[in-house]
Design a protein around this nucleic acid. Structure first.
Lengths: 207, 207, 207, 207
DNA sequence: GATGAATGAGCATTCATTCAT
DNA sequence: CATGAATGAATGCTCATTCAT
């Protein structure tokens, strides 16, 4: 993708208007659904046009390219993770155990609701051009680091016990995606049941 | 994919010849490498032709379609898992702890060696037509069940302790793919170090 | 191009206003620059809009179509030639030698200043629809005829000597475009030097 | 145009076969005609496909891109110029006057036969990517230099007389394109008549 | 006068697959 | 078995132009 940053020096104001962004968000959402269902490469711009009801040509008024859509889909899926640590309800928790449990709970809930989008993220991230992929990865990496911080704090306070904080944080994040990535083999479990099992599994491993 | 099962009225005998199968295997291997590196949709038949040195047209003498190649790539990646439980060295181990540990070790070694192919399997399995995907999934499911059996046996013998055998087996298999799926964020770890961390993490969880 | 001649039932008066024409002239000038640099087909209306700061839609208030712009660009480039013979300083010169020299000098100066626009004229004239192309060509043809008149007058007065007045006039006009059309291979010459060489070359040929 | 040099490491031998090159030459010739008539940008690959009778997809088996065609058209138009100085009939002429006259005659004949292609070359050369344009320009530049050599030799032998050899050579080459570039205003002349006029005009200027 | 969203035909190019030789 | 030419639908994307507000 060539992000037409330089050439896009036309009407800046309008492209930041709420209406414009709303329309673009509609595109992103529909595209996310299509990408999830059929895969990125298998979804054509014409299909996105049909699904959104926005003319093919007009689609490009709101987005730069197909790759641009993918990037924004990724951003959208990532956003809740980022928002999580801006949330007072979590940062204000003193007890590391409680704090980790809350984070896990939030992420499990999100993951069970957005199973397909998370799977999409794992599946198609390779398709992003290097620079955009880097942005996504850095975001994810930062998120892992914040989990790591909670773990370290917990270890200091003798609440947690584990070998390596960085490894543990990575593993926790990864385990939280068990359901999105392997739901096909977990059909026998009730959603609630599964969430509890995962939560206990993770908490046990660090306590 | 249309599998030309019945219509294949050519020299059947030769299609089972060793030479034929060897040639086909070369194709599968090269294709696996290309699919891993560039993605299935981004790899063209011409590239496979170029890489294997087999003419585009002739390629279709050995395989039925591009999808056929993908399926066979998946089979190839899966094979070691299946072979694992045909191996006396593992089935003959009496102690469930030792047995599980051996399985884990084998799979970790395999995973660290075939990182890209395993990632490929997670990434592109959706592209298979339903019937072929089902075959792959059932194979995987059986494999999980065999882990489950070890776990159950271990629980009976009071060696293991966990909530749900099926969940635990699924989680173990999943955790074993941590490195292939998230290697980009685990670069700081030495391979040996990481394998030990994962092994301990898994064993701790069930003991 | 469909020239909306009759249907233009808008505020005709305003379309002849100075403000309207000034604005349109700005468009023509910027478009000329863009067409010169990138070529007509490679320049989009959006680029013209961006460069002029006039909204894409609004652009069409001032011009009829992209082709209309091209035509007006051509007119603009041609104008100085036409004006040349309305200029007393030239028509009043009695001596045909001096008169021709003055014309040559004026055109060379103009050509060296508007190299790109003249090149544009040669390059893109084919893109005009036949009727508009005819207008441009007739204008040019008239201009050649006026040179021809000077030559004939000079021959009568035994100042000039050549085979065919029409041919000579055509050749002179053509030679005056040497720099715009082949500047890429004339880089070694200083502008002044080159102008002198051309002037002498042309004058020698008719004297 | 990205010349797919590296990726084209497939069947090299076949792409140099006479049959392959013949077919490609047919494409180039038809494309040259279309480009001449309608302009490069206004000619679509579909039209070239229709005109050549070669399927759109198959067209790309013989050429790399539309730009590749343009480049090869240019090469084709340029070739006779290059061949000219490989011709013994010309290089063996001792008398510079006779030699120049022969060259002029050859080029005029060529120019009157390939008016449209030469016009095309002037019109569309800007569309070539820089590297390919450079190749074309260097070729042309070399050609001018060879004319320059004839002129210099003639000056030494006191046969020719002019101000600057490089300028004169450039001007001669340019004048030889009078007909292709301005035929629209030279319709009144018979082809033979015009060729004689140009030849005399050029020879007079240097003698 | 100005805006920006809409239109849809058109573009060059790529692709898996086929088939006569 | 091997070849390489053929097929034509499909793809992402751009464009001049229009029009309701």
């Amino acid at each position: 993708m060539k992000k037409k940053q330089g050439t896009c020096n036309g009407p800046i104001a309008e492209k930041n208007s709420i209406l414009f962004k709303t329309r673009r968000f509609q595109i992103i959402k529909k595209a996310a659904k299509l990408f999830s269902k059929k895969g990125y490469a298998q979804t054509s711009m014409r299909e996105i046009s049909r699904e959104t009801g926005i003319d093919v040509g007009n689609l490009y008024y709101f987005i730069d390219s197909k790759e641009d859509i993918l990037f924004r889909v990724f951003e959208m899926v990532h956003e809740p993770e980022i928002r999580l640590f801006e949330n007072q309800c979590i940062t204000s928790i003193e007890d590391p155990g409680k704090q980790l449990q809350t984070v896990i709970h939030e992420l499990l809930t999100f993951g069970s609701r957005h199973r397909d989008e998370i799977l999409l993220l794992y599946r198609e991230s390779k398709l992003l051009p290097k620079d955009l992929l880097k942005i996504i990865m850095e975001r994810e990496s930062n998120f892992v680091k914040q989990i790591e911080e909670i773990l370290k704090k917990g270890k200091e306070k003798k609440v947690f016990n584990f070998d390596d904080a960085s490894f543990a944080a990575n593993m926790i994040i990864y385990e939280l995606s068990l359901y999105p990535l392997r739901s096909w083999n977990l059909k026998k479990f009730q959603r609630e049941e599964l969430m509890n099992l995962i939560e206990r599994h993770i908490m046990n491993a660090v306590m």
